[in-house]
Each structure stands twice: as structure tokens, then as C-alpha cells.
Write a protein that binds this DNA or RNA. Sequence first.
DNA 1: AACCTATTATACCGTTCGGTATAGGAGATG
DNA 2: CATCTCCTATACCGAACGGTATAATAGGTT
Lengths: 188, 188
Amino acid sequence: MDNRARIIEVAVKLFASRGYDGVGVKELAEEAGVTKPTLYHYFGNKKGLLEELLAEKFSRINNLVKEATRYNHDLPFTLNRLVATYFNFAKNNRIFYRMQLAMAFAPVDSESNKAVSKYIKEQYEMVEDLFIQAAEDHGNMKGRHQAYAATLLGMINTYIALSLRGDRELNDELLYQAVHQFMHGIYS
Amino acid sequence: MDNRARIIEVAVKLFASRGYDGVGVKELAEEAGVTKPTLYHYFGNKKGLLEELLAEKFSRINNLVKEATRYNHDLPFTLNRLVATYFNFAKNNRIFYRMQLAMAFAPVDSESNKAVSKYIKEQYEMVEDLFIQAAEDHGNMKGRHQAYAATLLGMINTYIALSLRGDRELNDELLYQAVHQFMHGIYS
DNA sequence: AACCTATTATACCGTTCGGTATAGGAGATG
DNA sequence: CATCTCCTATACCGAACGGTATAATAGGTT
């Protein structure tokens, strides 16, 4: 792993545990086994490091979400695939997911939220699109695509947050339970 | 409003918009029309300000949640009352709710998350208790109280977050839709 | 051999950080 | 009048902040 990649990995780790504002450039460089000028050589400034980090990591998950939200007129199947995509990504990128989640809920005027919001919005819109298409097959869902997208992503992130705290494991059983609850509620 | 109260209001406002780490004590004092020594006179240090602020505000919402989660063997009624409690509190304390939400998702090793987590946990446990009691009346819900508490609170916060972004208004219609979706899913 | 890029080591910049020391003023209470 | 509490004004502290300048070194490319 070269220096650039190592700096990014260290940044994800430290931002995830103490936040973007809570970690200094000096510590980032030291932890990556690199000097400050080297860090500035690659990323220009602290914000640049954050942005390049997010661009790289989000390009992966957002591509996966794009594939998973392809609607084939079988909504249960698509929802299962989508939730599975998130669960798998979160399992394989625990630290990044924790970091990204904190930034998604960070104050609106903070640098980290500004940097992350466009990628979150992309995901949001892909899921909305899915429900708009599905509503053509299920009339009673019409006009609720925004609420469905929000609550599905909210539920996904709720379960992932549980797993990040160690309360639950993101396995097939939980996946089934999540999708079933989303589709049919708690009675059944 | 006296100085102490004004400092707290200013702190909520600034922490909500730029985060605990993103706001300095100097700015807090200036914005409250007070000098730094005055701020330190009341709160000892920055962390003390945060803790006293949270203690005051959370004692209100957590008491409301305690009342709302009193189970009377009518789960739909209780859920409606609980969600209404959250929606009303969020409507009347928008800025605080935004701040608290950011801190709830902040990195685990950040001061703001440490300070806020015990209050969140209290809420969580009250809602879990509700579902444990309800499971005695609805056998098929047994053993899922943790997941139900997490997803209900997740959904509540999702809708409140939507309203804080201006996408939705927290009215009776949305309240009905949220509870209905939680109980019966998106099909129906 | 000359050159280029990546990188080091070190030292520095101005600013802001959280926090404190000192001395004194204003208003109510005794 | 004296005292007490609250508060101001100002100035300071050491440490950390983000960021830069300089000069030198090592390794691969032409």
C-alpha cells in the first residue's frame, strides 16, 4: 500500500472514531508514518483529503446501489437485493460506514456534512426512483416514494448502526426480518 | 432571560449548526453577550456547558417519553401517542432536536456522543419495555423488542430529519402514515 | 551523468484553541 | 455603610490548529 492509500485508510479510521474536527493533520500524518508536507503534497489541504477519501469510497457503494435498485417488477426481490447490498458493504467496510453515518447526521454547516451530502442524496434519489417505478405496479404506493425511500434507508441504517454497536449481526436472518418488517409491518 | 439561560440557548444554536468541536468558547460568549470568565463562572468548562445543557433539555423529552410509553394494552393507541410526543417535541424544539440527532450519530469517541449517549439509551430502554409488555398480548412479537424499539425510533428520527430539512411537515397525516407503516408495512 | 518525482527532516508562520489571573464595577441585601 | 454576588474588561497562558518554506536525500528514468 502506497503512502496516499495509507493516509486515506488512517483518515477513515481516525475520522470514524473522533470526527473530522476532532483529528488534526499532524496526527493523521504521524499515524500514517508520513510527514505533514507529504500529506499536503497529495491532498492540498485537510478538506481535500476528506473530499478525495469520500469520492473514492462512495463511488464503490453508490455503484452497488445503482445496480441493486434496478427494478424488474419484483419488488420483494429488489428490496432484498438492495438491503443485502447495504449489509454486505457495511460488513466489509465497517469503519468507513461508521464515519459516513456520523457525517450524514453532522450539522448542516459543518464541513463533513457538506462534503458527504451529495453522495447521500444520490443514494436517496436512486431508491426514490425504485419506488416510483414500483408504484406503477402497485397503485396504493403512489405518491409515497419519498417517504418509502427515507424510511427504508432509515431502517437499513438503523440495523447497520445496531451491528456497529455490536448488538446485532448482519446475517441473512436479520436481512429477512428487515425486509419483511418494511413490507408487512410488525403485525405478522 | 438571564445570562446562564442565554448562554445555553446560544450553545444549542451554534452546536446545532456547526457542531460541538466546530464552535469555540470565545464565540459562544460573544454571541451570548457575555465575557468568557462569566461563561466559565457558570459551567466550569466547555464540557460542563454541554453536560448541563443536555441534562436540562433531555429531562423534559425523556419525561414525556416515559409517560407516552405507559402501556394500556392498546398498542396502536400507545404507538400513536409516542410518535405524537416525539413529533410535538421536535416541532417545539427544532434546533435542539437537530443538535441532539447529530450528537447521537457522532463518533463514539467524541465528547458530544459520550455526553448524549446515556439519554438516548434511556429512551431506547423505555421503548423496549413497551414492546416487551406488548409482546405478552401479541405472541408473534416475542423476542423482537430490541429490533422494534430500534426501528420505531429510527423511523421517528427519519421523519423528523425530513421535517428539519424542510421536506415534510410533522402534521397529523404524517403521524398516521408513520404509525400505520410501522404496524402494517408498505403493502396496504 | 542529469533529471525528475517522491519524500524526508526541521523549523517556522499566524491564528485559534480551552482556560485563567487580576482588578474592579454595579446592584441588591444586610 | 459594608458586604456579597454577579459580572465586566483586559490581558495573558501554553498548546494545538492548519498550512508552508527550505534544503536535502533516495530511486528510478532518460
